[in-house]
Write a protein that binds this DNA or RNA. Structure first.
Lengths: 239, 239
DNA sequence: ATTATTTTGTGTGATAACGTACCGATCTTT
DNA sequence: AAAGATCGGTACGTTATCACACAAAATAAT
């Protein structure tokens, strides 16, 4: 009883030609992605790719002082496991489920078979890798030059794109860890956004009230990265 | 009369099996890389890959305020043109020659032929792309958390690794643009390093005096990224 | 040699963000 | 309902870095 492409929410898989998807389907295993699960641990071999169906995954870089910084975010527009695609079973980048959801697992040892079964898959995955690289690159500049409030807005928009509704299950504390700043700084920045009527929040839940207003308040980084996702993955592939 | 592998200084090409290199050689065109030449322009199609032989190339992300930030640096351990490898002839990342040198050009339309001629090449290029991705990711965290002086040291070490001697032809102004900070901040940071006897500088030239001392003064980012280059490209591939 | 240009040193005040701390509000557990 | 834990608001002093400005030193051009 095989997986139906029509019910797949992952954009990469949804874009595959129907026949290729059918050939690929036997390798795909539906899995839950509970919050805080680590899909890619810096010190352990990566055993599988994950095509995200729901929720979103943070790519983190841990520092020696114990802090860590988000270098990218992946939702149903993408997958976790670019190192495998690029020929290594390790990476110092950590991938952690930030918003619980589900995904389709493709075991690493089947990747070559899967690529044979679906010739379009390689191109899609490589394009996604490039889009992700662009996102990470933009983050370098963003972290260097843009103030906390804009970075926060940028993050909220990216998370909103990858979520199901207008609610984001994040505390100020979690956001602070994600953006690599103090919790108090988030409280101040989020307070300003709430006062401006762009968002509302209460105990661990942030609600997007004015999407257009947020887009206007974000730094360029949001739209630049979005445009690149669209260019590489098409309007349907982009979030 | 073909290119001799023994005289090639690019580490990726040097690591190829001799036979594969011979098959690839006809596609490689020696080129000069004058300072400030742009190998990859955000708004133009990328027509070629460049295997760096000498000098180094900055990967830049330009921002709307007119500033730009270095997201990575490539020397003879690598190549310019990962977007082509990953299936796109465009990228919003700019590649500019920062220290003049030379390279071997592989025209984009020959890449597929080249990959057929040298099966090892794809794996090497993908490993390099992953190493570069790691470097960029670490830069995100570094820019977020580490002070200017450490970032400067980090950059000096990376440039030193990729250069020929202990002299780096960079003004404070150029360094400021590279690191995305004020020129005065560089003068202060560099002044401290000079006072500590780690470097010496004069009008557009920085000399590395105490390599070990610099390594001790750098943030973790330098060694983390180095280790990843070594892991992925081997001791000979790493800078 | 003189003049212009580039490069570096330095100072002043402003600002963003930090570390830390404490309190009240809200949620969870019992 | 009470107690405990988590979450958010706010404040204080500190530090890193900024923007701007100007002069001294070094280099290049005439």
């Amino acid at each position: 009883m095989s997986l139906e492409q029509s019910v797949v929410r992952n954009h990469l898989l949804a874009m595959l030609p129907a026949q290729e998807f059918q050939a690929l389907a036997p390798y795909l295993v539906p899995v839950d992605l509970p919050a805080r699960q680590i899909l890619q641990h810096p010190s352990e071999p990566i055993r599988a790719l994950y095509f995200v169906e729901d929720g979103w995954i943070s790519l983190l870089m841990a520092l020696q002082d114990g802090s860590s910084v988000d270098i990218g975010i992946v939702g149903r527009e993408g997958m976790i496991g670019t190192p495998i695609l690029l020929g290594s079973d390790r990476s110092i980048v950590e991938a952690m489920v930030q918003r619980a959801g589900s995904g389709l697992r493709l075991d690493a040892q089947h990747l070559q078979d899967a690529l044979r079964a679906s010739p379009s898959l390689r191109q899609l995955l490589m394009h996604f890798s490039l889009a992700l690289m662009t996102q990470v690159g933009q983050m370098v500049a963003c972290n260097r030059r843009h103030p906390i409030e804009q970075r926060l807005v940028c993050w909220l928009l990216m998370a909103h794109d990858r979520g199901d509704g207008d609610d984001l299950p994040m505390t100020h504390e979690a956001l602070a860890a994600t953006l690599g700043v103090r919790r108090a700084s988030i409280s101040v920045a989020a307070g300003a956004l709430q006062k401006a009527g762009l968002i509302r929040y209460a105990s661990g839940r942030i609600t997007i009230l004015d999407r257009a207003g947020l887009e206007a308040a974000a730094c360029e980084c949001y739209s630049v990265v979005c445009a690149e996702y669209r260019r590489l993955l098409g309007n349907d592939g982009a979030v």
